[in-house]
Structure formats: C-alpha cells, structure tokens
Design a protein around this nucleic acid. Structure first.
Lengths: 146, 146
DNA sequence: GTAACTGCAAATTCTTTGCACATAT
DNA sequence: ATATGTGCAAAGAATTTGCAGTTAC
C-alpha cells in the first residue's frame, strides 16, 4: 500500500515552491469537514491574514489539483474543493427542492470506473458525480401536503 | 412501457405556451448528435433567424429542463445541453490533456443509482457524471515520447 | 540573484435580469 | 384581452490575467 505524500513533499518534488499561501489553502481544506468554495477558503484564511487574496486562492487550488491533492466538484454553477481521498468514492446528492447537499462515501462507483478503464482505454484521474433529485425530507414534506 | 410525450405536448399540458423559439431550441437539440452549449444552439438557430437571442436560448432551456426533456451537464465552467434520454446512462469522459470529450452510454450506473435510492431515500431525477483523466490517444502519445 | 509567486485591479466569460414590445391562447 | 414570452442592453457572479513588487530557493 502506497502512502500519500504530504502536500509539502509533493510541492517540493514537483519543483513548486513551498509558500505560506499554499500551505494555508491546503490546511484550510484539511481542517474542513465539507467541501469549500474559493470564497469559503478565502474567508477562513482572512480571519488570520486579512490581506489574503482571492486570486491567490484560485492559483493555489490550481496547483494542488494538478498534484492530485485536491479535487474540484461543480454544483450549480459554483466550484467546490476538497481533499482528493484515494480509494473511496465521494459524490454529492443535491436536492433540487431545498438545495441541501448530501455527501456520500462508498465504493459503488468502482465497477463503473473499471468499465471506463477497460472498455474505453481511459485513465481516470477523478470522477465527479453530482446526482440531482429530491431528498428524504422534501419527499416527506410533499407527502404530507398531498 | 410509457412513451415519451413530445415537447409540444409537454409544454402544452404544463401550461407553457408553444412558441417558435422553444421549438427551435428543442429541434436543434434533437438534431444534434452531441451536447451543445447555449452559444452553439444560438449559432445554429441564427443561420435561419439572425435576430435570435442568447437570453432566449437560456430561457427556453430552463423550461425544457424543468419539463425533464433536456438535461444539463457542466464541463469545465460551461454548461452543455442534450436530450434527456430515459433509461440509459449518458456520461462524459473529459481528457484533461487534449480537452476532448467522449460520450458514454450504458447501464453501468444503475447499481449506483439504486444504492442512492435505497440507502439514502433520495429520488434521483438526473445523474451528472463527469470523469476526468487521460484518453487513449494521449496515453499513446505519452508512451511514444518516453 | 533570479525565477516563481503574490496582491491588486482590471478584464473575461458565462449567465441572468429589467423592461418595453410582441404574441399565443 | 391579457398573461406570457421575447429581444435588447445592461447587470451579475465566478474566475482569470497583467503587472509591479515580493519571496523561496
């Protein structure tokens, strides 16, 4: 089993410089339980460093994504970022009625990704699954009204 | 087996008006083999109707989506639209190297969607899967260089 | 020392909205 | 007849870029 290199290490071996900004963005994502938008990340960091800049957030994320440390998911027009965990799926159920997002973990996507690799000769780096529909709570609400 | 209502019918029974604009957007999507961006649709229609407006395209798409006739996929910052085919998966493999997009059809997502319905009490209306990675052609190219 | 990086402001790109006019029902 | 829909122009929102100054190596 191969262990994941730290961000510090990964930056270094790829010839990127280790800046405070990159570390802050990385740490913010690590400390978060859920995915964050670029603005979310900025807001967090600005508590400590009010001069921190949004363009810098985007540029740091770009590097971290390129290194495979961070993945991006687009939900309704906006990009969200989270750590790229290896091995497990991580996808999102978006309720179109109340707007809530459920985070799902599991291994159900594994066969799909295998199919893609085997049948289409495509090397998968990241699968972004966003499922739209209606959450349990909104169904219950609709049932009551009926 | 339930047959799909035509767009005309669906608009009518939902109380929407049947306008030429909506028909043109619908027909453009039906005639296309691949997904189209709003700009693509506009360009197509403008060949015949040069005054056709982009805002109208978006507004027509919004209605068609609401009726479940059209689905939207976001790939790299941009929305693409295509007919919402029932029954089969339709997802996209995006090569991050050359930028090409492969359209995949199949039933591999079925177990995943079942899992979502069963375990999370979530009624799925649309699953949007975008897989990033490297296509066969770019792998071959990389192998040659090595 | 110097190439890479950041902050700032301005630009870009996609999408949405306000409003006066047009049209489907 | 009138509520709905469209075209146009302008606004919005998220992300990117140019550039001068800063910093990691």
């Amino acid at each position: 089993m191969r262990s994941r290199p730290s961000a510090t290490e990964a930056l270094h071996t790829s010839g990127y410089r280790l800046t405070m900004q990159r570390q802050l963005v990385w740490d913010t994502l690590r400390q978060s339980k859920k995915h964050l938008s670029a603005e979310d990340i900025l807001a967090q960091i600005r508590r400590q460093y009010p001069r921190f800049n949004l363009a810098t957030v985007y540029r740091c994320l770009e590097v971290l994504e390129e290194l495979g440390l961070v993945k991006e998911t687009r939900i309704r027009d906006r990009a969200y970022y989270e750590l790229a965990e290896e091995g497990t799926d991580h996808y999102h159920l978006v309720c179109d009625q109340c707007g809530s997002t459920l985070h799902i973990e599991g291994d159900h996507m594994v066969p799909v990704l295998h199919h893609i690799t085997d049948e289409h000769d495509f090397v998968v780096s990241n699968a972004d699954l966003v499922v739209h529909g209606r959450c349990a709570r909104c169904q219950a609400k609709a049932a009551r009204t009926r």
